[in-house]
Amino acid sequence: MSNAILSGEGLQKYFQTRRGVIKAVDSVDFVMREGEVLGVVGESGSGKTTLGNMIVGIYPPTAGKVIFKGGDISQGAGHRSLEIKREIQMVFQNPSSSLNPKRSVRQTLEVPLSVHKTASSVGERVSELLSLVELPPEYADRYPEELGGGEKQLVAIARALATNPSLIVLDEPTSALDVSIQAKIIGVLMRLKDRLNLSYMFITHNLSLMRNVADRVMIMYLGKVREVAPTEEFFKNPIHPYTKMLLSSIPVVSDAEEAVKPEKIVSTGEIAGALNLPPGCSFHPRCPFVMEVCKSVDPPLLEVEPEHFCNCHLYPNDYKDKKAPWQ
């Protein structure tokens, strides 16, 4: 088992708004190992993007710690050392907003190079970065409007690579792209990971994608981690009722895939508003197995199988001996 590169301890991010406090991320603990792809999966309002933003330092957590390679990096990016900024990079969701329309690819890639002085020859390094993301060197002199969505995202990946980082937070890097292009981008990312020994925190709403790229999957719902497990185990034995609802809602193309979905849990209800979180377990208003205790007590995250964590009152540690109430 390789070492932890990144961990979060009791991470919280509350946003004070005029109408009340939004608990975007609430008491999140996680560990990410070196060289790992951790899939952070959730729907809108799950807090997955807020979590990613705290890690790269777009804003500091309200409480809790972000630990990177043993050091506390809970501050915002403005207070982090240049070295930490070099080590942790991000790729954003929207390809059209992630590149400055007025700057050529070369100008965009030169910024990290001149700040971090990681290359002796800037021009050579620009071509090298482009070849890393499998774009021809002529692309250096193009402007974003001349690039397709996938190409823009490749340039954004090249920009993140320019500082020789060890951890990249990928915030839905392919969700705005067509599937045939998504396949290309994922291929490039996976080759880069092996070649440059990178670790990815892959934020997404797409579980099918995570089935194919993540080493471990972490499910978030309304600011909390609901389930974490190694990918194989996660898809073979999903435990949390929300995970099951999510899995059975996924549109799939083939009968073979339909067969691996868990027993159908029909999606009902709406995701609660972040301002008025339900008391107890925040999933209880939509949960088909809701019990009295769920309405008042938020369950803790427990290891129900080796490496497989889940927080649900149905599953105390010895859940195999106990029968769930509907059985």
Partner: peptide, 14 residues
């Protein structure tokens, strides 16, 4: 608030 400004900040640009 555009991502390209965020990216420049994260890289440490002045």
């Amino acid at each position: 608030n555009e991502d390209f400004v965020r990216a420049a900040e994260l890289v440490g640009a002045s």
